[in-house]
Design a protein around this nucleic acid. Structure first.
Lengths: 352, 352
DNA sequence: ACCGTCTCGGAGAGCGCTCTCCGACGTGTG
DNA sequence: CACACGTCGGAGAGCGCTCTCCGAGACGGT
C-alpha cells in the first residue's frame, strides 16, 4: 500500500503534427507524408522531419488518424450469445474453457505480426447487438471475428447486411453468406466411430453436446452415419452441455440404459473427463471394459488417465486462418466469400 | 463456398449529427446536448430530436467523440513479455492455459456492465512497448490492465511515469508505485505446508515454478518459512516452468534425489498433473505413498485422479477487482495508489 | 524564348463530434 | 419603463490528422 498522486502530466500537451512541422520548418502535409512514407519527398526535408520527430518525441494520434482514414488497426472479437443475458454465469464457464484461450492465441499469432489489436466484445442483448453493428459501420473496428455460441444468432446476418468484413469461427447455424472457418466435425465423428468399430466394440454409445450447436450437431450426424454404415442403425445417445459434470451425468445415464456398452464416443474432452469418472465409479475399466474416444485433443486429453484417444481439433490453426481471411477481406472488400474447412485427425492414446 | 460481392454500402453515407440537426430543425449543439442528456433542453425540442434520431437511424461515431472527449470506453489488457520476442511459441502456451481465460472472464464481468470493451495487446519488443505507451498517452485506451510475465518488466514503470491509469494483476517484480491486485502466495504455500505436515508427512518436497516470477518466488519462500517453523530447515526442491511436462520431469528429479519423499507441494495444478503421472510411473500411490497439494484450484484439479487437494486462487474475483480498481482510478485520477491482496484457501480433495 | 510536362511542397478543407462562448428572449424588480 | 438577471439555443472554434487540390519551380523540346 503505497500512497502517491498519480503524476498526471497536467497541461503538458503532447506534441502534434503541427509542432513537428514548426520545428522542421515545413508544413503539416509534408510531415504527414514523411511519417506515412508517401511518395517522393526531398531527402533533405525527409531528414529534417525525422529529426524534428525525434526532438519533439512525437507519436501520431491513432484516434485522429482513424477518424479520417477509416482504418483503426483493430479487429473485434465478438462473442455473441443470443440466448443469455448480461450477468449470465455461463460466460464464466466459457472463458475458463481452453477453447476461448486457444482461439485468442491463434488469432493473435497472426494479428500481432500485422500490428493489429484485438478488441473483445461480448454481446448478449438485442440492444448491445444493434449498438455493436452501429459502431462497426462507423469503422470502430476494421473487421470482426464472430465466435458464435449456442442458438440461432441474428448477428452474422446483421453483419453481412451492413457489409462489415466478418469471419466466423464455426459454421453459422442459419445459412448466411459469411466467411467462416470450420472443422469437418462429421468427419471427425466418423473417425471416432470407425476406430471404435475396428477395435471390436459391439455396443457403442455417444455422449453428445447440445443439438442446437452446429458443431455439436455435425458430430452427432457424422457418428450416426458412420455407425449405420457399419450396420448399427441405432446408437445409444446421451447429451450434455460440454462441461465435465454434464459428461459424468450423461455417462451414468448411458450406463444405466445400456449396461452392455463397451465403447463410447464423447463429443468433447471435458465431458470425456467426466465420463471417465463415472466409469471408474461404476467399476468399468478403460479401455478394457469400455473404450473411449474424445474430441478436441485439448490439454485435458493428455492429462486424463488413461490418456484420451481423441479427435484432434486444430483450433489455433483455424483461428489463425480466420484472422488471415479477415485481413484479406479487409484489404479487398470485393473478395468473394469463401470458407475453409479443416480436416480432423485421430490421435491415438490409451483410452481406445 | 458461396460467391458474393460483399454488399458494401458504397456512397451510402451514415447519418451524422448534422443530418439529425437538419431533420429536427435545430442546431448540432442541441442534438449533441439531447443525445448526451445534458442540462435543460426544452422538452419539445427534446422530443423532436429523438424523433429525428429515429428517422435517420443515427448512431454516434465513437471515434469522433473520443477525439474530443479523450475518453474511449476501452481498457487495454496488455500481456507484457519482456523476455520473449515476436513469434515466441511461449505465447501459445500462455493462451491455452486457463489462467488467461479466467482473467479475461473476471475482467469482462465488470467491464461489460460498464459498457467498456477490452483491447488485447501483446508487447514483446522494446519498440512495441514504446509505441503502446505513446498510444496510451494519446488516450487510445482509458486505462490499462497489465498482466506481467516472467522477468523484470520495464512496462509498469513506463506506465506510471507517464501517468496512465494502470492496474497490475500480480505484484510487479520491481517496486513500482502502481496499483495492483495480488494473491498472498506465501500464505497459500504455508497452508499447503501446514496441511502436509499435519497429515504426518515426514519428507516433504516442493516443485516450484521459475524463481524470477514474483508469484512463484513467494510460494517458495512461504513454503520454506512454514516448513522451517515445523522444524524442517531444508526442503528438497525441483523447479519447473508451470507446464505439465515440466512438472513430470521435476517429480522424477525429486524422486531420484529423495526416494523417501512422502509429501509434495506443487506450485500449480498443471505441474501437479504431470507430477501425478511421474508418481504413477514410479509405482507410488497418491495419497497413500505420497501426498500432494497443488495450487490454483483450476479445472485440472478436479479433473485429476485422484482429485487434487489444492490452494484456491480466486483469479476471477481478483481480475474483477482489478477492473473495478482501474475504473475508479480512471474516474478519479488523483486517487491514491492502493493494492488489494487476496487470501488463498485450501481446498481439500483426495490427493492429500 | 516559349510552352507543355513533371516534381514537389503548401494551403486548406474536411472527418464527426463537443463545448465554450454569446446573444435572444422572458421575467421580475426599482 | 429601464435595467439586471436567468434560461436556453446557436455559432463556431477546435480535437489531430489526411489528402486533394493548386501553384511554384525545374527541365527539355521545338
Amino acid at each position: 500500500m503505497t500512497a502517491g498522486t498519480g503524476r498526471l502530466p497536467v497541461g503538458e500537451r503532447l506534441p502534434t503534427l503541427e509542432d513537428v512541422a514548426r520545428v522542421a520548418g515545413v508544413s503539416r502535409a509534408t510531415v504527414s507524408r514523411v511519417i506515412n512514407g508517401i511518395r517522393n519527398v526531398d531527402p533533405q526535408l525527409h531528414e529534417m522531419v525525422w529529426n524534428a520527430v525525434g526532438q519533439t518525441g512525437y507519436v501520431p494520434n491513432r484516434l485522429a488518424r482513424s477518424l479520417v482514414t477509416r482504418r483503426t488497426g483493430t479487429v473485434a472479437l465478438v462473442v455473441s450469445d443470443s440466448e443469455s443475458h448480461d450477468d449470465d454465469p455461463f460466460m464464466g464457464r466459457f472463458f475458463a474453457d481452453p477453447y476461448f484461450g486457444r482461439v485468442v492465441g491463434g488469432l493473435m499469432s497472426v494479428l500481432r505480426t500485422a500490428g493489429i489489436q484485438l478488441a473483445l466484445q461480448i454481446v448478449g442483448t438485442e440492444e448491445q447487438r444493434t449498438r455493436l453493428v452501429g459502431d462497426l459501420r462507423h469503422g470502430q473496428a476494421d473487421g470482426v471475428i464472430v465466435l458464435s455460441l449456442p442458438g440461432h444468432d441474428p448477428l452474422p446476418r446483421m453483419l453481412t447486411d451492413v457489409g462489415v468484413p466478418a469471419v466466423m469461427i464455426g459454421r453459422p447455424a442459419d445459412p448466411v453468406p459469411i466467411n467462416y472457418v470450420d472443422l469437418a466435425n462429421d468427419t471427425g465423428a466418423c473417425l471416432a466411430a470407425d476406430h471404435l468399430v475396428e477395435r471390436g466394440c459391439q455396443l457403442i454409445g455417444m455422449i453428445s453436446g447440445p443439438a442446437d450447436v452446429p458443431a455439436s450437431n455435425d458430430r452427432i450426424t457424422g457418428f450416426r452415419r458412420s455407425m449405420a454404415r457399419h450396420g448399427h442403425a441405432w446408437v445409444p445417445l446421451a447429451s450434455g452441455n460440454f462441461t465435465q459434470e454434464s459428461g459424468e451425468t450423461a455417462m451414468r445415464t448411458l450406463l444405466a440404459e445400456n449396461p452392455g456398452v463397451d465403447g463410447v464416443f464423447v463429443a468433447n474432452d471435458l465431458m470425456a473427463l467426466g465420463a471417465l469418472l463415472a466409469l471408474r465409479d461404476a467399476g468399468r475399466r478403460v479401455p478394457d471394459d469400455v473404450a473411449m474416444v474424445g474430441f478436441d485433443d485439448s490439454s485435458a486429453a493428455v492429462a486424463a488417465s488413461p490418456a484420451l484417444t481423441t479427435v484432434r481439433h486444430p483450433l489455433e490453426d483455424m483461428a489463425a486462418e480466420s484472422a488471415r481471411l479477415l485481413l484479406a477481406r479487409i484489404d479487398d472488400p470485393g473478395m468473394r466469400i469463401s470458407s475453409v474447412i479443416y480436416e480432423p485427425t485421430l490421435v491415438l492414446r490409451q483410452s481406445a
